[in-house]
């Protein structure tokens, strides 16, 4: 605990000194601040990553939570800092959803990608007694009955909501479903209680119930199956043709950060992702370690941004 406070004091002190220091030696000569945008698992992974990166850098990486506004507040903060590598952000697809949803006035081009770290793949679950074994089953049943499908996901414009809509569109149920927004991972409970017909959330929230047989995971939204759930098909296999949506997480700095600084952070991030501790955490927390260098990461961000813009456009959620 005192370590945390001490570190943040160090950071602020270092910042004050840093402003006055004339010539600059080699990066990093003071702690690097990593802004974390969300609580729960995003925060836990971020804290662990910062901890592991610190072992491969002369100065520590300090995780600082700036949650709120669905990531907008944290992006705004890092966007406003100097492009010197001392302020980095633990980012995700939320940069695209925040921008296209009109929450922030700048898009992914305002940031220099450092490295892709991990992906998280949402899972689509239904009640155990639904009798559905695939998305195709579900779609056929709903179309035959004419009743609306109640699907739980996070709030409108969130990544899980967009993924839900993409699945519904792929199986032709866009007009036959009601999106019920939930926060704090309550969707699985509502599903077990029978108030929902289906829910799309992170697998960690479903796995224990899936194993206990209280609900059934139909598919995962990535093109390939995931290591956490080797027996669960992908949504493409299950009836949603061509579906491939994953939530990546990675590190970025304000645009214009010098390449040699980016390279150092990239190297530390790479070492962290290769550690046994990080791999073990991936299994228990429920994400896939998926390192990519800054160039490949940049291409991914741009590609994903177009997909998200299209999706939000179709749903009438695109504000800019």
């Amino acid at each position: 605990m005192t370590k945390g406070i001490f570190a943040s004091v160090l950071v602020s002190a270092a910042m004050a000194v840093g402003l006055a220091a004339p010539a600059r030696a080699e990066f990093p000569e003071k702690p690097v601040e990593m802004t974390i945008l969300f609580g729960s698992t995003a925060q836990t992974i971020g804290q662990l990553l910062a901890d592991l990166m610190s072992k491969h850098m002369p100065e520590p990486v300090v995780p600082v939570a700036r949650t709120g506004g669905g990531g907008a507040v944290g992006y705004q903060h890092v966007h406003g800092t100097a492009a010197d590598g001392y302020n980095i952000v633990w980012n995700s697809n939320s940069i695209s959803t925040s921008y296209h949803g009109g929450k922030i006035g700048f898009d992914h081009t305002a940031f220099q990608p450092i490295a892709k770290i991990s992906v998280e793949v949402p899972a689509f679950a239904v009640r155990a007694d639904s009798g559905w074994d695939s998305l195709a089953d579900m779609a056929a049943d709903i179309k035959a009955s004419g009743a609306k499908l109640k699907v739980g996901a996070s709030g409108k414009g969130s990544f899980t909501h967009l993924s839900t809509e993409a699945i519904l569109a792929a199986v032709g149920l866009s007009d036959m479903a009601v999106h019920v927004p939930y926060d704090q991972g309550r969707a699985p409970v509502e599903l077990i209680a029978g108030r929902l017909d289906a829910a799309l959330q992170w697998p960690g929230q479903f796995i224990s119930h899936h194993e206990a047989g209280t609900l059934k995971i139909l598919c995962v939204t990535s093109a390939k199956r995931i290591s956490q759930l080797p027996d669960v098909p992908s949504c493409a296999e299950s009836g949603a043709e061509g579906l491939d949506l994953v939530m990546w997480r990675g590190l970025a700095a304000p645009a214009g950060t010098p390449p040699e600084t980016v390279a150092k952070l990239e190297e530390a991030a790479k070492m962290a992702t290769e550690s046994e501790e990080f791999k073990a955490a991936a299994q228990t927390i429920g994400f896939e370690v998926d390192y990519a260098d800054h160039a490949a990461f940049g291409e991914l961000i741009a590609r994903d941004d177009r997909t998200i813009a299209d999706l939000m456009g179709q749903l009438g959620l695109k504000a800019q």
Binding site: G185, V189, E211, T284
Partner: peptide, 28 residues
């Protein structure tokens, strides 16, 4: 028993349990 955190404090507790490989839910 369900893996549902009721408030911010239990949400933090949940991530602490997860990192030690304890996945709350019926199987726990």
């Amino acid at each position: 028993s369900l893996g549902i955190p009721g408030d911010p404090a239990t949400a933090i507790l949940l991530s602490g349990l997860l990192i030690h490989g304890l996945i709350p839910g019926p199987m726990l």
